[in-house]
């Protein structure tokens, strides 16, 4: 029988991507030099992946020799890729962590516009979830606490002017909506 025993290694994740609702990349990282080494190949793969997944909400697909798990919300699509023999549940746990972390960072405002506004924090979160293909953390609470930059956690005295501005703006927006 063909042995597909998995080599014991921590390098589990081949790639992580966040795409918008046209299949364009918002953020994406590939961790294996042998998997899509050039940006062009990566983007072709992403387009292909998006076309196959944006309509069917089916959570998992095999594409180009990779197992890809995915989740979407409004205009955001989250993907985690691993080798086709990888334990799918591990990939899923990473995807859930990514999704929940971003959701917490954006305070449940899961929209492309909001992601772009807090792109720096989302980048940091992605970096805290996976480093060079190794899962650093798969617990969204702990990831969020490490990028720990939510305004209300920091006393007003230590907030930067920008943060104060941001929260004031947010409040104003809500009051206008009422």
């Amino acid at each position: 029988m063909e042995g597909y025993l998995l080599e014991p290694t921590l390098y589990t994740i081949k790639g992580i991507a966040i795409l918008d609702n046209d299949g364009n990349r918002i953020l994406a990282k590939y961790y294996d030099k042998n998997v899509f080494p050039t940006a062009k190949e990566q983007k072709t793969f992403e387009k292909n992946l998006f076309n196959k997944t944006h309509r069917a909400n089916a959570e998992i697909i095999m594409l180009d020799g990779l197992t890809c798990v995915y989740r979407s919300n409004v205009d955001l699509f989250f993907y985690v890729m691993g080798s086709s023999h990888e334990n799918e549940l591990i990939l899923m746990s990473v995807l859930n962590c990514l999704y929940d972390s971003v959701s917490q960072i954006l305070r449940k405002n899961m929209e492309k516009r909001v992601v772009l506004e807090s792109l720096d924090i989302v980048m940091l979160a992605m970096d805290e979830i996976c480093d060079g293909g190794i899962i650093i953390d798969a617990d969204s609470n702990s990831v969020v606490s490490r990028v720990a930059l939510r305004n209300d956690d920091i006393p007003i005295g230590e907030q930067t002017v920008a943060q104060v501005f941001q929260s004031a703006k947010e409040q104003l927006k809500w009051s206008l909506l009422k």
Partner: peptide, 19 residues
């Protein structure tokens, strides 16, 4: 000035990420 620099750095990283 972090208020100025952070977005610029973010943009730079975003560009690199776009390939």
């Amino acid at each position: 000035n972090p208020r100025k620099c952070t977005p610029i750095l973010t943009k730079l990283l975003y560009l690199l990420n776009q390939g």
